[in-house]
Computed example of a mutant assay.
Amino acid sequence: MSALICGSMAYDTIMVFPDQFKNHILPDKVHILNVSFLVPRMRREFGGCAGNIAYNLRLLGDDPVPMATVGQDFGPYRQWFAEHGIRMDQIRELPELFTAQAFITTDLDDNQITAFHPGAMMRSHENHVRDVPGVSFGIVAPDGRDAMLQHASEFKAAGIPFIFDPGQALPLFSGEEFRHFIDQADYVVVNDYESNLLQERTGYDEATIAGKVRAYIVTQGPKGSRIHTQGAVHDIPPAHERRITDPTGCGDAYRAGLIFGLMRDYDLPTCGRMASLMGALKIEHPGTQNQRFTWAEFAEQFRQQFGTTL
């Protein structure tokens, strides 16, 4: 049985401005802002939540099924996934549109200016969870608004356990809609900032959310993560990376480790540690899909980090 990964697939174009934005933006002239930044360094990465989660699950030896809508420029991404043996039967290509993409410019202070083009992602509701056979687990990750609402409803109707991961889609929904997502989901995963925002929107505290799902998981960056259940709170220690190269995509790697563990009935503390290690292995590499390891290497790293075997 496979995990259905509902979410975005995107290209990330990342550029570095070798100066500080503040030196070129006049505060008293922002009403007539017209600036241009020379960016001698640029790279293009494969990204999007569904793409990143599927890639990380494949590293663990799983057979994920990413579900997304993409555009006429998907060719290089398709080849990348083919090289890694990742299924693409639930990826719908819309030739009249472009694949979603982010254009990110970072200055020397790590400030960022990002332009995001959703492209084909805005029609991701044309895919249906109910049409995919052989699915035993799922995740509703950031995607088009209508798609996220629809996918959650169809997972629930099919009796398929799933994770609700609002992420950067948090601004798209009302408190009532978030409460409905929580009522449908089996797990909710957010970072600590998103947790505060979700609580503010819903009027629920952590204990209330945990009481409505099997687990409410809050990541805390270098501090690790916390898994809240109806009867306990599990503090998950961070895995220790050998070097910090690029944090982009660590959250998606964490979610892949969580999904892998949950599908194999590991207990929640073990699932959290697997997820933590996935994030640490990702942060050692640039981009979101450039880390490589085998299951044996992952299991050995887990033993060294946490003192137990998988």
Rank of each mutant, 00 (worst) to 15 (best):
A3T: 08
A3Q: 04
S8F: 02
S8L: 05
T13W: 10
M15K: 12
V16Y: 11
F17E: 10
P18M: 03
F21L: 03
F21N: 04
K22P: 00
P27R: 06
V30G: 06
V30S: 05
V30R: 07
S36K: 14
S36R: 14
F37D: 11
L38R: 07
V39S: 13
P40C: 09
R43T: 14
F46P: 10
G48C: 07
C49Y: 01
I53F: 09
Y55G: 13
N56T: 00
D63G: 02
P64F: 03
P66W: 02
A68K: 07
P76E: 02
P76Y: 00
F81W: 12
F81N: 04
A82S: 12
A82L: 09
E83C: 10
E83G: 07
I86M: 11
D89G: 03
Q90N: 08
E96I: 00
L97C: 06
T106N: 01
D107N: 06
D109A: 15
D110T: 11
T114A: 14
A115V: 14
F116T: 05
A120P: 02
M121P: 07
R123C: 04
S124L: 05
N127V: 01
H128W: 07
D131P: 01
V135I: 15
F137H: 02
P142Y: 08
D143L: 03
G144R: 01
D146W: 02
A147V: 07
M148E: 03
H151L: 00
S153H: 10
F155G: 06
K156V: 05
K156H: 15
A157E: 14
A158V: 04
F162A: 03
F164P: 05
D165Q: 01
D165R: 00
D165A: 09
Q168E: 08
A169H: 04
P171Y: 13
E176A: 14
V188T: 06
V190Y: 05
V190N: 04
L198Y: 03
L198W: 04
G203A: 07
D205V: 11
T208W: 02
I209R: 08
I209D: 10
V218Q: 04
T219Y: 01
T219H: 02
S225D: 06
I227V: 13
H228K: 05
T229F: 06
G231N: 13
G231D: 13
A232F: 00
A232V: 00
I236M: 08
H240M: 09
P247T: 09
G249T: 10
C250N: 02
G251D: 04
Y254H: 15
Y254L: 09
R255W: 00
G257P: 08
I259H: 08
F260N: 12
G261I: 14
G261D: 11
L262N: 03
M263Q: 15
R264N: 13
D265F: 11
L268D: 08
M274H: 13
A275I: 12
G279N: 10
A280M: 12
K282C: 14
H285T: 12
H285E: 15
P286I: 12
G287I: 12
G287Q: 11
G287H: 08
Q289R: 14
W295Q: 13
A296D: 15
F298E: 11
F302N: 12
Q305S: 15
